[in-house]
Amino acid sequence: NKEQYAEEALNLEDNIKQWKKIYEQVLTVEIHGQHFVYRPLSRFEFRRISELEIDDGDKEEIICSVATLFPESYDFVNDVPAAIPTQLTNLILEASGLSSPEETLNILTFYRDQMLDIDSQIDCIIKEAFPEFDLEDIPHWTIKQAYFYFSRAEWILANLRGSRIDINKNQIPQVPIPEHIKQHPTSELNNEIQEEKEIAETSTKEYPEEYYNLPPEFREQDSSNIDHFPEADLLFDDF
């Protein structure tokens, strides 16, 4: 009804933010003056609907009901122009990669081609050695984090599972160096590095000679005053 629709529309912006956290895609479209927010179907959902022994028109209505997020209460069966379920179903299937067998095969080919890239292979190798990580999260790691885990994954697979992975340096993805860094004179870069090193060295805290005779567990204490040494307290207790 109109009141329920108005309430849903009022919270639509917040709902879309939540839906984007749940679904792979959240899409919008206007058909015959009616706004819809929808998502792709999962393979399981599509398979179950396809197996139903009903006519195509009824399947379209079910597809729309399952994949439509807004308006949640929309009735795709009664008093609805026939073009709405048909057009919306086509959009839902297209977003789901299910509009045709050719489209589905193209998607599979695209992702198979990605696996020829060593960067994608590294993600899978890390996942095999560390199954607790999400495969979709690993590509978002920094180079240092990814290669830290990749080096450990190589060792685990080779030494604990007997699966040696041979990757030479020519296969490692090359990160392009920005032009402004290429044009930066090497001598200037070296000078900057040297200056940073000198600053770090001069800022290093100097300790008295007695400090280096202390056991390691005492070295984090302030050694600028001998009264702070645990040994000193023991000596003074004797007097």
Score class of each variant (00 low, 15 high):
Val26Thr: 14
Val26Leu: 07
Val29Arg: 06
Val29Ser: 15
Val29Lys: 09
Glu30Ile: 13
Glu30Phe: 01
Glu30Asp: 11
Gln34Val: 10
Gln34Trp: 00
Gln34Tyr: 02
His35Gly: 08
His35Asp: 12
Phe36Pro: 00
Val37Asn: 06
Val37Asp: 04
Arg39Leu: 02
Arg39Asp: 07
Arg39Glu: 07
Arg43Asp: 12
Phe44Gln: 09
Phe44Trp: 07
Arg47Tyr: 12
Arg47Leu: 14
Ile49Lys: 03
Ile49Phe: 03
Ile49Asp: 04
Ser50Trp: 03
Glu51Gln: 11
Glu51Trp: 05
Leu52Gly: 04
Glu53Arg: 12
Ile54Cys: 08
Ile54Phe: 09
Asp55Ser: 08
Asp55Gly: 11
Gly57Lys: 14
Asp58Cys: 04
Asp58Met: 09
Asp58Tyr: 08
Lys59Met: 05
Glu60Phe: 09
Glu61Ile: 12
Ile62Leu: 10
Cys64Asp: 00
Ser65Trp: 03
Val66Ser: 02
Val66Ile: 08
Val66Gln: 01
Ala67Glu: 01
Ala67Val: 00
Thr68Leu: 05
Thr68Val: 06
Leu69Glu: 01
Leu69His: 03
Phe70Trp: 04
Glu72Met: 07
Glu72Trp: 10
Glu72Asp: 09
Ser73Lys: 13
Asp75Val: 06
Asp75Phe: 09
Phe76Thr: 02
Val77Met: 11
Asn78Met: 10
Asp79Pro: 08
Asp79Cys: 06
Asp79Ser: 12
Val80Ala: 02
Pro81Ala: 06
Pro81Trp: 00
Pro81Thr: 00
Ala82Gln: 11
Ala82His: 10
Ala82Phe: 05
Ala83Tyr: 05
Ile84Trp: 04
Ile84His: 03
Thr86Ser: 11
Thr89Ser: 10
Thr89Leu: 02
Asn90Phe: 06
Asn90Met: 13
Ile92Phe: 07
Glu94Arg: 10
Gly97Glu: 04
Gly97Met: 05
Leu98Trp: 04
Ser99Asn: 13
Ser100Thr: 11
Ser100Pro: 01
Ser100Ala: 12
Pro101Ser: 02
Pro101Tyr: 01
Pro101Trp: 01
Pro101Thr: 01
Glu103Trp: 00
Glu103Ser: 15
Leu105Met: 13
Leu105Thr: 13
Leu105Gln: 12
Asn106Lys: 15
Ile107Asp: 13
Phe110Gly: 00
Phe110Pro: 00
Tyr111Ile: 14
Tyr111Lys: 12
Tyr111Asn: 14
Asp113Ser: 11
Asp113Trp: 04
Asp113Tyr: 10
Gln114Arg: 14
Gln114Asn: 14
Met115Arg: 14
Leu116Asp: 14
Ile118Ala: 15
Ile118Thr: 15
Ile118Met: 15
Asp119Ala: 13
Ser120Asn: 14
Gln121Asp: 07
Ile122Gly: 05
Ile122Arg: 11
Asp123Phe: 10
Asp123Leu: 02
Lys127Asp: 01
Lys127Glu: 01
Glu128Ile: 10
Glu128His: 08
Phe130Thr: 09
Phe130Met: 07
Pro131Val: 06
Pro131Glu: 09
Pro131Ser: 07
Pro131Leu: 09
Phe133Gln: 06
Phe133Ser: 02
Phe133Tyr: 15
Asp134Tyr: 02
Asp134Ala: 12
Leu135Ile: 15
Glu136Val: 10
Asp137Asn: 14
Ile138Thr: 05
Ile138Arg: 06
Pro139His: 03
Pro139Ala: 08
His140Gln: 13
His140Tyr: 13
His140Lys: 14
Trp141Tyr: 12
Trp141Leu: 03
Trp141Gln: 04
Thr142Gln: 08
Lys144His: 11
Gln145Asn: 14
Ala146Met: 15
Tyr147Ala: 01
Tyr147Gly: 00
Phe148Gly: 03
